Computed example of a mutant assay.
Amino acid sequence: MMIFRARRAASLAAAALLAAGAVTAFGVPAHAAGTETDLAVTAAGTRMTEGVEGKYGWIKIANQGEGTPGKVLVKVDVSKMDDEKMMLVPLSFGECEVIGESKPELFTCELAKEEIPGPGETSEVSIVLFKMDEKVTGPLTAPVTISIESDDDTDDSNNSIDVDVELTPESGVDLGVFVPDVKTRFDFDSGKEKGPLRPGDTALVYSQVINQGDRVAEGLKLTFQLPKGAKFEPIEGCEIGDDRRTVICQDKNFLLEPNLLIEAELAITVDGDLEAPITLKGGSLEATAFGALPVDSPAIHRKAAKPAFAKAKVRQAEESDFADLDPSDNTDDFAVILAAPNGGGGGGLPVTGVQAGLIGGVGAAVVVAGAVLFLLARRRRVVLVTPGDEKTTA
């Protein structure tokens, strides 16, 4: 079973407010017994074509330990960026502050409770890279340092990374992928998430794929991989491996326009003989395009509303050697998190909750030096709906 959805997303406005030099102090994270863990940070999606106004990237925070920290700070040092040409801004559901006298230099965000990863989980914190003026052109490169801090972290050797933020004069397709960890049981009778996921339960793998380039992606291939201990339910129109852990969905004729986003949900079943609590690692989604077309191509007017795999037309999977502008965000890993058989009730966030809206619906006020309002690229969502339910929500 595969479910597609489409919505129109509100424009993402990065609001720049006057930073008068006074920054709210977050304080020292309180340490509680049993919260010790090991956090690690990586990043993806920091290369952008000059042909767009902005793009989303991700700061990924993996919890490699056994506890859940009580407080996590994310710091983004942008002091070496030319703020008259381009800027990178983190978007957290928690509180963010910025320091800098004449320009933004250091963003500090305290993660909201739902953004803090538990044992084996990975949280994605959105970042937005945008041009300060539409006339800005590349090539431009600036170093940015991203770090995390937590009083509960027992190993700080993997808490900081240096990345190059790049504006390239190249034109092309730039696919971005987002898949949150799966940790909520889905009841197909009621169509709702119901509490934490446990052995033998069914769930949905939620995913988003967006084209953030300035050219149309001609053809789309999605390769889903499940960790051991979970299996896909039958999916019409896609190739499924013998072990039911790999699914390939593709349509070489489907056109994914710039700023167009596809959402998909695939049904899975967790093995009933697993000993929980346990984290099943090794899930992933990779998105690949087969080619690129200019945005004014006549083919755009004839494009299908849904890819072929949403119409139950099976096609043989093929390889693509097409080069994406920024391959760092073409793949996203995820885990399947199982709660203890008798542990807790009610359970965490549904997969279509807060994290599921990270790409298309983040309407956040971001504190930046100066009283200027930056309006980023207008984003819209394409909905591919459940078969038999052809309504599109706006």
Rank of each mutant, 00 (worst) to 15 (best):
F107W: 15
P117L: 12
V209N: 10
P119M: 12
R198C: 10
V173S: 00
T122D: 07
K103L: 13
F188V: 08
L140H: 01
G100P: 12
V179E: 00
I161Q: 07
T122W: 09
D189M: 13
K231R: 15
G94I: 02
S160I: 06
C109M: 12
P234V: 05
P169R: 03
F178Q: 02
T184L: 05
I148P: 09
A203L: 03
R215A: 09
T122K: 11
E114D: 11
G219H: 02
D214P: 08
V177K: 12
V173A: 00
K194C: 05
S150V: 03
F186P: 09
D156C: 02
G200P: 08
A142M: 08
A217Y: 07
N211Q: 03
L226N: 03
K135H: 10
K228Q: 09
G219Y: 00
P227M: 04
P180M: 06
V165L: 11
K113Y: 14
V179P: 04
T168S: 09
M132D: 05
V209I: 11
L204C: 05
K113N: 10
V125W: 01
V209T: 12
G118D: 09
E115L: 10
D181M: 04
V163F: 04
D162K: 14
C109D: 09
A230I: 03
G191F: 08
S102L: 12
D155P: 14
N211C: 03
V179A: 03
P199S: 00
G213A: 05
V216A: 14
P139V: 01
T137Q: 10
V144I: 13
L175M: 11
T137E: 08
C96G: 12
E166F: 01
D152W: 14
L175G: 09
G120D: 04
E170A: 15
L167V: 13
V179I: 13
A142P: 01
F232M: 10
E121K: 15
R215K: 08
F178M: 11
P104V: 12
S157D: 01
S157E: 00
Q208D: 04
G172H: 02
K228V: 06
A142E: 02
R185F: 13
Q225H: 10
K228F: 08
D174Y: 05
K135Q: 10
T137W: 00
C96R: 11
S147R: 14
G120N: 06
S171K: 13
D162F: 12
L111H: 10
K103S: 15
L106V: 15
E149H: 11
G172P: 05
L222E: 08
K221V: 01
L197K: 01
T223E: 06
G100R: 10
G176H: 09
I161G: 11
D214R: 00
I235Y: 07
D155V: 05
G195T: 03
A230R: 00
P227Q: 03
C96I: 14
S207R: 01
I235M: 13
E236S: 14
I161Y: 07
Q208N: 06
G118A: 14
Y206A: 08
L222G: 06
K113E: 14
E149Y: 12
D189E: 14
C109Y: 15
E105P: 04
P169G: 04
S126A: 15
Q225V: 05
D201Y: 06
V165Q: 03
L226M: 15
K231M: 11
G191P: 05
I161C: 07
A217D: 04
L197V: 02
K194R: 11
P234E: 08
V163N: 00
T145C: 04
D189V: 14
S207D: 05
E95N: 12
